[in-house]
Design a binder for these strands. Sequence first.
DNA 1: CGAAAAAGTCGACGCCGTGTCGACTCCGGT
DNA 2: ACCGGAGTCGACACGGCGTCGACTTTTTCG
Lengths: 204, 204
Amino acid sequence: MNAPGRRRGPSKGDRREQAILETARTLLASKPLADITIDDLAAGAEISRSSFYFYFDSKLAVVVALLHGLTGELLADAGPWLDGTGPDEESLRTSLAGLATLWRSHGRLLTGALAAAPGCPPIAQWRAGLREAHVSRLAARIERDRAAGLAPEGPAPAVLAGMIDDLRLATFVGAADPDEIIEDLVTVELRMLYGDLPIRRSGG
Amino acid sequence: MNAPGRRRGPSKGDRREQAILETARTLLASKPLADITIDDLAAGAEISRSSFYFYFDSKLAVVVALLHGLTGELLADAGPWLDGTGPDEESLRTSLAGLATLWRSHGRLLTGALAAAPGCPPIAQWRAGLREAHVSRLAARIERDRAAGLAPEGPAPAVLAGMIDDLRLATFVGAADPDEIIEDLVTVELRMLYGDLPIRRSGG
DNA sequence: CGAAAAAGTCGACGCCGTGTCGACTCCGGT
DNA sequence: ACCGGAGTCGACACGGCGTCGACTTTTTCG
């Protein structure tokens, strides 16, 4: 395909593709996904609307591409917490702080994408995969803790982990300032996982 | 100005209005809101598409009308729990059971409406009002409990209450069978409110 | 170099769902 | 009989989507 040694330029098309992605990022910072049209994207990349289809199948395809770029980052700071044991407040806080930082720059994209998820299989699938990645590791952590007697019995690990994942998402989506909710999330998640009631529940 | 329709009058084609509402309910049982067109609604009520606009301003207006019919029911069984004190597991369970029953019959409507909320002010407003109604009462309950020494300090009552409201919504939306999650929700909510950690947090 | 192929571009078209308008019918009241 | 408003509808304009075929530019290779 490419001549060896020299000239490995990003073809014109590659730069256009980047331009579309970049335009989408920019536009998303100013208005919700639903208000962005293919025309906008094409105009931002300085091509006609029909040329847009040479690069992407649809507006959602652009979003999916953007989303995939975030997949890695979303769990980046979560390692120490997810691989750890017991109510390790510090690593949980670090994990959530990473998420908050990410949310700061990409909140609109994520909010918009998540809003479009029902009715857009690829996005729903992306979200499902991400959820699964988080839930499975967190569920494993819960099992470990329970086996070690560090955490009380309760909902099935996968269910509890799912609830925590849902809660995070809902809280970030609704938050004005992501940083302000970190402490509350730390407290609440720890309670969900390790909280023991002052009054013993029957059959515990 | 009027929520449901614009014209005023006695009642003759008011049955048509009912027919539209009823069609919407039926259709919603079989497919998501986004897949229902004004044509469908009009056809179900046996009128032409343009006649539809005599009764409602848009598809969303129909949904809003449907939603308002549910407002009362949504908090119907929550009284004993919200007005009570302390970790009263039974009344919490009753409250959630009522919600589950409601979800059984109107889950699709609620899921669809909630999905459409961002981007549809009237729906978002309805949801916000409902959330506020729940959150304010729950927050008051939390304050009462804390003042009485029944619940540990933690996130601001309104924040914690909001998280619980969010968690309920997310859990019901994602649930295959609403009844199956009640017990887990009971456990988790009680932990969020009353859970004490085995390890004391610094600066409590 | 120059021809063919691949990459990229665009205008025009048809589709679909929305919302509006004006003309029409229907029906009860005086 | 006729009047007016409730109710109905067809036709229209609009905006966004996705496709097609023809065109231009760039790359490849003999």
